[in-house]
Design a protein around this nucleic acid. Structure first.
Lengths: 165, 165
DNA sequence: CTAGGACTTCGAGTGCACTCGAAGCCAGTC
DNA sequence: GACTGGCTTCGAGTGCACTCGAAGTCCTAG
């Protein structure tokens, strides 16, 4: 369970997973639903993973993974010795949760989503509503970031000008 | 100095300013540098503004505006009675700072930028470097957000499917 | 049999960015 | 000339999301 990879930001790490999943045909295609399905999990994983391996794979520290579990954000099985054993499904859940976090969903909302998912299929409507709401927030944030980028670019291109702020 | 506008998120408010600046020809064009120049300040402002008006214009609360000044993030003049009097330049600085904050620049970096700007024109190189670095961070964040959006969209479109997480 | 290292829990600490409340000043109104 | 509302400062409090350390357990290698 020794960690062999250097540390990276979660998004970088998850994107690495994505790219290794997409590298079969040597291309780095634009993101679409097929790619997302492909990126979900690499195929050559052992049955279960230790916390350090999940940390490497996701870019989330082991400390944070334990924290996430503590607050009910993910559920993880244990091996005979009481250590966390992440199977394929658990890893998938963690990656999804990580994307939700990266997209700015507050932990409270992720927790709510996870609780709904655990409650059974009859909560699908509510979960969907949660995701749609979040989607709108992400789109809005994306718009703001693009505007901010334009403002920063304007400032950059006018350097050497008379602008004093 | 009474506040007449309802409260909004800073990005919403600043975008309102942008749109009112762009409304001259009735269009809502894609953001570009000309637009950004135009959005900087509406033309029909009084000489100076009170803190409540700036709060309305930017979506930043008066409390936060004072906080920003306290930590050296902006500099603001006072009127005879000791009240903050924001002139055109101060308002422009605050709007720029707000865009920096909205694009995720930490307060410490904004403060550094502001200090450099106050130090004089000989710091232009360093300021430019700061902005370029930040620009890269924004672009990276934008990419991550787009990926996350794709993941969320995948989840949304597969609702009703077999996916249990 | 012992040492090392990765794991465990629990609780407390950190960093960032606000956010608020209290107490007081000051301009205009009835 | 008291009242009201908006401003002022200062310091303390809040919320979020980690982040860390201590003390102990368990497997593996030498």
């Amino acid at each position: 369970m020794t960690s062999t990879l250097e540390h990276h930001h979660p998004a970088t790490r998850l994107r690495t997973v994505l790219e290794s999943a997409a590298a079969d045909d040597g291309t780095l295609p634009p993101l679409d639903q097929e790619l997302v399905r492909a990126m979900a999990l690499p195929e050559d994983l052992p049955e279960t993973l230790g916390i350090a391996e999940v940390a490497d794979l996701t870019g989330i520290t082991a400390h944070t993974l334990r924290y996430y579990e503590r607050i009910g954000l993910v559920v993880v099985a244990r091996d005979a010795a009481g250590r966390r054993a992440y199977d394929r499904a658990a890893l998938g859940r963690i990656m999804f949760v990580t994307w939700l976090r990266l997209s700015g969903m507050p932990i409270a909302s992720v927790t709510r989503y996870v609780e709904l998912a655990q409650a059974g299929t009859h909560t699908a409507d509510e979960r969907l509503a949660l995701l749609l709401e979040h989607r709108a927030a992400v789109v809005s944030h994306l718009r703001d970031l693009q505007t901010a980028l334009a403002v920063v670019d304007y400032k950059i291109t006018t350097y050497g000008g008379t602008c004093g702020s």
